[in-house]
Write a protein that binds this DNA or RNA. Structure first.
Lengths: 121, 121
DNA sequence: TTCTTTGTTCAAAATTTCCGAACTTTTGAA
DNA sequence: TTCAAAAGTTCGGAAATTTTGAACAAAGAA
């Protein structure tokens, strides 16, 4: 298996970062990774998604996050441990990831309130 | 011609905003609109793009920005005047647009320096 | 009216994404 | 060792999205 490619943040276009996080599944996975103490493998992380997706699609999503410089994936035995590269991205694009993670949280909160109060109350 | 649709920011998923700005042409157009005092029509704004694109593609790009709640387009005679909806987006997702606009500026700056100093100097 | 300018819509081509099947790598059990 | 299971990757075709030229619509000027 070819070694995984991890670009320097300086090599990653801003558009690639935004594209990586413009997918519902990917931004959810990334925010979850950011919020964890310990790195987790891909299959475990899939559990945070609302809709189940194919294993090959999940692999592709992790590749997109990795090549956007957002996560680092290390092989640990048979699994991959994924960690966020927040500090590196922050060094180049200050405030970017924090704003997106916060926005995601705000959206989740709004959805939760919408669900608990079905129609105008 | 059907009236243009402008969603409430609360109705726009975060992913739609990120997707709208994940395209090189769209983020460039948007950042340009944000930086202008006066609203501009679509054709004029096309001049800020590096690569020329088809008129129909440009129209589609503005539609994507509009439906992501990022710009407001008003018909003024035969042309469309576009303005950014920064304040509204800021109210829901604090810091998001500022961070992206700033990141875009940082990237432009880095590209400029790279061009003036071709290979390691 | 007729022409020009600006932007939209439509349908087909080009590109990207998703998924199932097959494959690789590593671990652990027999 | 050998075999099987687990976790991901790769590949090829199907499905979805994007791009584009051509035709169309609307407003204003001649």
């Amino acid at each position: 298996m070819r070694p995984l490619f991890h670009p320097e943040i300086a090599e990653v276009p801003l558009e690639a970062i935004l594209h990586a996080l413009s997918d519902p599944a990917r931004v959810t996975l990334f925010v979850d990774i950011v919020g964890r103490e310990c790195s987790q493998n891909c299959s475990t992380l899939q559990a945070v998604l609302e809709k189940p997706i194919a294993k090959s699609t999940l692999s592709q999503h992790f590749k997109v996050l990795r090549e956007a410089g957002l996560i680092r994936s290390e092989r640990r035995g048979v699994e991959m441990l994924n960690t966020a590269r927040c500090a590196e991205v922050e060094a180049r694009y200050p405030g970017l990831l924090a704003a997106i993670v916060k926005a995601h949280s705000i959206q989740r909160q709004a959805e939760a309130e919408k669900t608990s109060r079905p129609a105008g109350s």
